[in-house]
Design a protein around this nucleic acid. Structure first.
Length: 795
DNA sequence: ATAGGGTTAG
């Protein structure tokens, strides 16, 4: 039989049998080798067959052989590029098509391609261009432009405009277009930049227009899921209860809504009802329930509940699909890690017959949260694939554990591997800079964030506020806060903390009041911050007031950390009686943070008797913390009880309390001496004041605004008759720095080199006062934390 | 159309 005859006979059939595919290849080969010239119909049909059988490369080869491919051939190829996700090639093909042969179908195909590539703006632009060039939109045009619009989701105006257009062209008579419009409204409504309730009302109107004569109508699920996504659970539930035909997807959506809102009872109630009604539960149901149990703010009851779900799944599901195994086990991994059960989590992971990237990311993040950095590093290395999420977990995990340098390195590596960091990844990188106190790097990343349009991102913005605050530039922190397109409670907390850290206690409180005026609910962290602010500003009365309102008006049960700050506040003001009665009134036994606060107050006011009591309790509670021994021996020394001093030091040695890393015993003794001197009487106090004043002056010249009053005030009140004797003036500077706001960056003027004594002093102090100190001179930064130092050159 | 892995504030 002639090839031409065969071509006609087989290719006019609508089905793509394997015979057609084989034939397609034969004909293609024939075209290449012989002079056979098939007509347009055959060629287009061949291209179509190649595309349908995912042989786009062949299709393209054939396409390139055609001297003047028509619009059908072009559109076929374009759709194939679009559905395989190759938007660039689709766009190239579209743009090289002569204007004269374009038609509505080719425009539709390109809009769909943009929609697949999540480029709503491009899709919209093309739609407008299409109208300008007088192409007539059809229902397909609207379906694709609606689904493209979901990726923009920050301009409700677009939805409404296109809604009107669709009515004008009669496209809404088609149910699938109505559904696309419905999804579009629902999707746009979840953006924080729009009026959610208004868009949901529009969505509801569309939903009500959908004819409900079919038993199974997908718009029900879309609408229910939409209500769930936009946090209107009652409306969702009402719709669900009104459904005559129970759809498992809708039930799953409802359960996930309850879980997200923290209504775990309701979620499990739905699950039981679903079960009794005979609706088949699936991996979606189980993962939602397991994640409910993994929610951090619940206790042991939920742990057992999660284990029961685990057991239930193992018992009842006989032949789980790969998808089922992966999603349920992934949820279980997270569940176990949230309860610090790394062993169980690893067991689940190790026993999985198939794993996907989510499984790997889940164990990785589990390790990071358990502070197992080494294990996380090795998992990261052996992972078969990594995505943006993987890198984000690693970067922020490193930053949070003080490995700022490593975090930044990974961030750069991520970019050099061609991955586009997301908002969260930028947040991690910015935190790395904050940890390092590296303003230069922070600013550089800030400009990247702006350039890439991530500046609307919450996380990056929030991280920037903290980074600028820690690097000593409150003004920049404030300008970030003010220019963020929308903020959340975390942003407020970050900004209040930024002000508090820099000694602007009053402004911090003002901002807090403004937050209340704007009806933003403060949380436990807001109050921690505000107590710190009061502490720094010496606002004792206000601090107590806020502590009370926290309990009464906002129903937040104060944690030990809140009590510790209150006690810190009272003790710094010398109100030891009140502090003691607060401790008595606490509903739990006082732990280390409480005694530490008390001890700190006692040191300032020289209340040695009470201080010794607090220190003794601390030695019982945290016998390995060397700082306490030092302070205690100082206090005995101040009383002249040298045998007690000796006893404390002996105790320290007996208990094998680790000496400072990098400090020899002799140096530790020296440091002890520093503190001893602080508590002793010396005639050279004037020299220290002069020196501090000079330091403050130099800092001002360098553009840093130290909290001068705070430094000098404390020096004055505590050490009026004290001074330094044998140790160098450098240590006086160090002492002054101790008094600077938490997390402040200190620029060291040029004749002071951070080395030797001074370096060790910083290490020691960072441990004793349990705070981070960042010191930078012109070439290097030094970051002291928990008695360790990381230092290096700027990038 | 539904679920499972991430971030930022103290």
């Amino acid at each position: 039989m002639d090839v031409r005859d065969m071509a006609y006979r087989y290719l006019t059939q609508l089905t793509h049998t394997s015979a057609t595919k084989t034939l397609a290849r034969a004909i293609h080969a024939h075209i290449i080798t012989s002079g056979f010239t098939p007509n347009t119909f055959i060629l287009n049909r061949l291209i179509n067959i190649y595309c349908k059988s995912s042989n786009i490369t062949y299709a393209r080869k054939l396409f390139d052989k055609i001297p003047k491919p028509d619009i059908v051939a072009r559109t076929t190829l374009l759709s194939a590029y679009s559905s395989s996700g190759n938007i660039k090639l689709a766009q190239e093909l579209f743009n090289t098509t002569p204007l004269t042969i374009h038609d509505t179908v080719s425009y539709n195909a390109m809009i769909t391609a943009y929609s697949r590539g999540n480029d709503g703006h491009a899709a919209l632009k093309l739609f407008l261009q299409m109208k300008r060039l007088s192409f007539l939109p059809d229902p397909f045009t609207f379906s694709s432009v609606f689904s493209a619009l979901s990726s923009i989701a920050d301009e409700e105006w677009h939805c409404q405009m296109l809604h009107c257009e669709a009515i004008k062209w009669g496209a809404l008579l088609i149910p699938s277009v109505l559904n696309a419009l419905l999804s579009c409204y629902v999707c746009c409504a979840s953006s924080p930049l729009v009026d959610t309730s208004k868009l949901m009302a529009s969505a509801r109107k569309v939903f009500d227009e959908v004819p409900k004569n079919q038993v199974y109508e997908p718009s029900w699920t879309t609408m229910i899921a939409g209500y769930v996504r936009n946090d209107d659970l009652d409306a969702a539930r009402e719709l669900l209860d009104g459904m005559t035909y129970p759809i498992d997807v809708a039930w799953n959506a409802m359960i996930s809504g309850y879980v997200r809102r923290g209504l775990y009872e309701e979620a499990f109630g739905m699950f039981r009802r679903m079960h009794s009604m005979g609706i088949q539960e699936d991996e979606y149901t189980y993962t939602s329930l397991i994640s409910a149990c993994a929610s951090c703010n619940v206790r042991m009851g939920m742990f057992n509940c999660g284990r029961q779900v685990h057991g239930y799944v193992l018992r009842t599901v006989v032949e789980p699909s790969e998808r089922f195994i992966m999603s349920v086990n992934n949820a279980l991994i997270t569940f176990y890690t949230k309860y610090d059960r790394m062993v169980e989590a690893r067991r689940v992971f190790d026993k999985m017959p198939v794993r996907d990237i989510v499984s790997w990311n889940a164990v990785l993040s589990g390790c990071i949260n358990a502070r197992r950095i080494e294990e996380a590093n090795s998992i990261f290395r052996e992972m078969p694939e990594r995505n943006v999420l993987t890198w984000t977990v690693m970067i922020s995990g490193l930053a949070q554990n003080g490995f700022g340098e490593e975090g930044l390195k990974l961030f750069n590596q991520m970019k050099s591997e061609g991955l586009e960091p997301c908002d969260y990844a930028y947040a991690g990188a910015i935190t790395s800079c904050a940890v390092l106190g590296s303003l230069d790097n922070g600013q550089q990343i800030h400009s990247q964030v702006i350039r890439l349009g991530h500046d609307s991102g919450l996380s990056a913005g929030n991280a920037l506020i903290t980074m600028y605050a820690r690097c000593g530039v409150v003004e920049s922190a404030e300008s970030v806060f003010l220019t963020m397109p929308y903020v959340d409670p975390i942003s407020w907390n970050a900004m209040i903390a930024a002000l508090a850290q820099h000694g602007h206690g009053v402004q911090a409180i003002e901002l807090f009041e403004q937050m209340l005026k704007e009806d933003i609910l403060p949380d436990r962290i807001t109050f921690l911050t505000i107590l710190t602010a009061c502490n720094h500003a010496g606002l004792v009365k206000e601090g107590r007031h806020y502590f009370d309102t926290m309990c009464t008006r906002y129903g937040i049960t104060p944690g030990e950390d809140h009590y510790a700050r209150l006690i810190d506040l009272l003790c710094r003001a010398g109100m030891f009686l009140e502090a003691k009665s607060v401790i008595k009134s606490m509903p739990f036994e006082a732990g280390a943070p409480i005694w530490e606060a008390l001890l700190a107050g006692c040191r300032i006011h020289g209340n040695i008797e009470l201080g010794i009591q607090a220190a003794d309790r601390l030695l019982e509670l945290i016998p390995q913390q060397d700082g306490t021994y030092v302070i205690l021996s100082n206090m005995y020394a101040a009383l002249g009880q040298w045998d007690e001093v000796a006893r404390v030091r002996l105790l320290m040695r007996e208990r094998g309390v680790k000496k400072e890393p990098g400090c020899s015993w002799v140096e530790v003794e020296n440091m002890v001496h520093v503190f001893l001197v602080d508590d002793a009487r010396h005639p050279e106090v004037q020299a220290v004041y002069t020196y501090l004043e000079q330091l403050v002056h130099e800092m001002r010249k360098l553009g840093y605004v130290p909290d001068t009053k705070f430094v000098l005030h404390d020096m004055e009140s505590e050490h009026k008759e004290n001074a330094l004797s044998t140790h160098s003036e450098k240590l006086a500077v160090v002492y002054g720095i101790m008094k600077l706001p938490l997390g402040a960056t200190i620029r060291v003027f040029k004749n002071l080199r951070i080395c030797g004594d001074c370096h060790n002093a910083f290490k020691f102090i960072s441990k004793v006062v349990a705070r981070e100190i960042v010191v930078r001179d012109r070439k290097r930064f030094h970051h002291f934390r928990n008695g360790e130092c990381s230092c290096g050159n700027y990038w």
